[in-house]
Structures are given as C-alpha cells and as structure tokens.
Computed example of a mutant assay.
Amino acid sequence: MNIEWAPLRVPMNRRLQTLVTAFFTYTFFTLPISSCLAVAILLYYGEMFVRSLLLIYFVIIYLDYKRNYGIMEGNGWLFYRGIRRYRDYFPVELVKTAELPPNKNYIIASFPHGILGTGTCINMSLDIGNWLSQFPHVRPKIATLDHHFKTPFLRDILRWWGMVSVSKESLAYLLSKSNDPKHKDNRDGFTSNAVAVLVGGAKEAMDSHPGQYILTLKDRKGFVKMAIRTGSSIVPSLSFGEVDIFDQVSNPPDSSLRRFQNVVKKFTGISPLLPKGRGIFNYNYGILPHRRRIVQVVGSPIDVTKCDTPDPEYVDKIHGQVIRALEKMFDEYKEKYAPNSKQTKLIIQ
C-alpha cells in the first residue's frame, strides 16, 4: 500500500482550498446523520427549556413546510455561498450555450449525478456568481430529497444554500411562480426560477466511476410531466468531469454490494456509496474529491406546451428531445472538456 503524500511546501491558497473542500465534503456526507443525532442528544439530555424550544422549532418546521414546502424565497444566504475556494479547488466552470430569457421558468435537467453532484451544486447553489453573470434575473435553485426539509437543522442549512425539495408540490410551487417584474415575489429583481433536478438520482450515483458517463434517464419522465404541467422549459445540462473527482468501491449490478445499496435506496431514497478519493495530506486515500476540472455545460431550452394532464405521447416526444439534446451536447463538447475523450462514451439507460 503506497501512500502518495502531499508535499510540505504547498501555496497557502491551495491549502485553504483543500480545507474548505474538506469542510463541504464532510458536511455533505455527515449532515443528515449528525442532524438527527443532535436532535436526539438535545431531547435526551436537554432541560425542559431546551425541549420546549425544540418543540416550538418542530412546529415551525411543520407549519413552514405546509405553507411553502420549506422553500426559502430569494437566493438563500449569499454571504455563505460566496466562498470561491471550493470552486477553485477543482476548478468548477460554467459554460453557456444559449440564452435563458427571464420571462419563463426552467427545469435544468442535470447529468450526471456523480457522487455528490458537485459541479451543479457549486454553480447553482454554493457560489452562484458565475450563474448570475451569465443568466441575469434567473434565480438558480437545486432540488434535493424531500425528507431533508423535514429534518431539523439539516433543512435550515440546505435552505441557506438555496436548495429546495424535489417533491412534486415543491417543484410545482416554484415553477408556477409569476414572471411579472411587478409581482411581489420578484421584488429582488429576479423574474425567473431555474430549478436543477439531478434526474438520475441515487441510482445514477451508484454507476459513477471515473470516465463512465452512465445516465439513468430512459424511464425517468416525471421531470418532463412537471415541465408540461407548469409550462416550464427543460434545459439539458452536462457536467463534464463530475464522474472523475471520486471513484467508489466496485459495485457491478450483480454484486452483493449493489444489491445492498438497492435495498437501502428503496427504503430511504439514499444509496450508501463507498467513495474513494484523496486525503488532506495524501493523494490516493481518503474521501476528499480529487482536484479535477468540472465543466457544467448548460444547453438550449426545450419549450413545451402547457397542459394540466400531459398526453403520454407528448411526454415521450419531449423526453426523446431531451435525450437527443444530451447526446448532441456530449458529442460536441467531450473533446474539449472530457479527459480521454476518445475512450469516453455516453450510455443512457
């Protein structure tokens, strides 16, 4: 077991990038469990006053979710999201291929999921400066698991980061918002919502290995139906390099590990991945992502005709357009942004 240690003399800026990345990585991996653990400790060891505060907090969570599905209006906590060292660690880039007029709402169909969806998360949640400069007046959001927004502490951090629930009700709430500049919801100057949905989800994450762009899409049509019901355009998005920042323990479809992951995913919505990355002081062991470039390419919007009850044939038609758009984007940009592009293929399953 040969460990490749990081050199002692590393520029301070790179050290800081590694520390910030370590913070976010460990936070993403441990936050759901640590949030539940914190609640359990406070309930068990806390005095009556602490328990009363928790009870009030639970009621607030319940009422807030009933009111607007836990969505924080606006762009979240921009101060916290302005940390650029996390972006610069990889680095993460954003490539615009078409305009997104701020007179409508959008579903950003983002692929691949990777282990954490890092590229999309940085561009549309943690550090949205590049997004706002390229798509002015379009408010970016990322949709994640619904039960996260019913979990104390976790839901507040995700809200501060500008994330929203991926539930049908939450998406419909956001994508049905007015695009009128004079509407009260648009007093911040933003007249459009662009909600990124990592369509492949936990299933696609299990197929994430360096150099393998395996997308879970053929049977995923819910986002198309939502777009049609709300009249939102679908914008295909490909993050080149997303699958390269982590590897994971081998889990072929017929392996015991994959069967275990499928069982856990069925009951929790989360696939228990075993990521393989680097460490803070070494380059080949740990769960930190590798320093590898991620380029999120945002495609052209696919317009749909609004209908409350989408026709299956029309859903299939739009779904096919999304698949063809992704294939075209991959072929057009892989030589420029994908390492070992000649050996890299796109598989849609």
Rank of each mutant, 00 (worst) to 15 (best):
H148D: 03
S167C: 09
P252T: 09
S239E: 03
D254A: 07
Y26P: 00
I228D: 06
V164N: 08
S208N: 01
L346G: 08
R258G: 07
R291W: 04
S133R: 15
A98S: 15
Q343H: 12
L63P: 03
G231N: 02
P112I: 08
E169N: 00
R293Q: 07
H319D: 10
I318L: 13
V20H: 01
M48C: 09
T216F: 11
N282K: 10
Y80M: 15
Y337I: 05
F111P: 05
D180L: 00
Q248L: 02
F90A: 06
V298Q: 03
Y337H: 12
L42C: 02
F153G: 12
D311H: 08
G277D: 09
G279W: 09
G201P: 03
I348N: 12
S34Y: 13
L94Q: 14
F29D: 14
A6R: 12
S192L: 05
S178A: 00
K221W: 03
T344H: 13
D219A: 14
S208M: 01
K306G: 07
E73P: 07
D180Q: 00
R87S: 14
Y337S: 06
R259A: 01
P32V: 11
V224H: 07
D185Y: 10
Y45T: 06
N130H: 11
F281G: 01
P210R: 01
D308W: 00
N75V: 13
G211W: 08
H183D: 14
V224S: 05
P301L: 05
V298G: 03
T18H: 02
Y86G: 01
V297E: 00
L43W: 12
G129W: 13
I294C: 10
V164S: 00
D185V: 13
N123F: 03
S271D: 12
W160E: 14
K266E: 10
A202S: 12
I234A: 09
Q17L: 02
R155I: 12
S110K: 06
L145H: 11
A143F: 05
P11I: 04
P289G: 11
W131S: 10
L326N: 06
D311N: 14
D64Y: 11
V235N: 01
R292N: 07
F24T: 00
R258C: 06
V263G: 00
S125E: 04
V20K: 04
W5A: 12
W5E: 13
W77F: 15
L326M: 08
A325Q: 14
M12D: 08
E169C: 00
D311L: 02
F281T: 07
K336N: 10
P112S: 15
K265A: 12
L53M: 14
S133V: 11
I3K: 02
K334V: 06
W131M: 09
G201T: 03
L273F: 11
F79A: 07
P252F: 06
L238H: 01
S35T: 11
L273T: 05
V95R: 06
F79W: 08
T30E: 05
Q248Y: 09
F49Y: 08
F260V: 15
F153L: 15
G114K: 03
N179T: 12
S133C: 06
F267C: 07
T151F: 07
D64A: 11
K168S: 14
L217V: 02
A143K: 03
